[in-house]
Design a protein around this nucleic acid. Sequence first.
DNA 1: CGTTTACATAGATAGCCATCTATGTAAAGA
DNA 2: TCTTTACATAGATGGCTATCTATGTAAACG
Lengths: 101, 101
Amino acid sequence: MKYQNYSDMLKAMAEPNRLKIIDLLSCGSLCACDILKHFDFSQPTLSHHMKILQKAGIVKAKKTGKWQHYWLDPNFITTFKQNTDSLLRADADCICHQAQN
Amino acid sequence: MKYQNYSDMLKAMAEPNRLKIIDLLSCGSLCACDILKHFDFSQPTLSHHMKILQKAGIVKAKKTGKWQHYWLDPNFITTFKQNTDSLLRADADCICHQAQN
DNA sequence: CGTTTACATAGATAGCCATCTATGTAAAGA
DNA sequence: TCTTTACATAGATGGCTATCTATGTAAACG
């Protein structure tokens, strides 16, 4: 389906805590324990959120020693902005210019 | 909370059917019956989705005679793009440059 | 005035989701 | 080797949500 990838990204972003995580990571790489300091929920809950962000292609991760480092996937930034522009502009690719169903 | 409005928009958008509705409306105004032709779900389900899009400030509506007309709120388009840029750029307003919690 | 059309609302339900506690694991330090 | 630190995983739960059927309502039409 045309909207599936973009919808997956939006779904992952559509949670205030995950939005805050993305904002934190927009400045660079962080490990889980540093991210957790900004929140009130438990560590397993953060782990859950990070997994969702990775599955949606928003966040990349790498383990070095004890620390799990997270950062924004550069492809996500460009893809998301591109999809947003495409959605909100009435161009030739728009579904309303095509056959129904 | 800083992310609440943006998160509400994302939440409303994070559903493939509603994303398709936004795409349809990006070309201009449509009434409910015309939107419904593009989908397999029932009429009450569309009514439910339109209410969610209105509550999130994405869609405006006006009833004229029998027909309920819907169109994208121009403020949504600018606000959404602005919030997206703000989120994904590591500028001075970024949370990571401020005190924790 | 009865019927049709274009919706909205009510109530029910199955499935998903954010959170928790409890526990496992692997690396680092003493 | 024992303990601590930094995670991940499992399982449970309460709440939300997308969908349905049934029904109400208001406008238009004959």
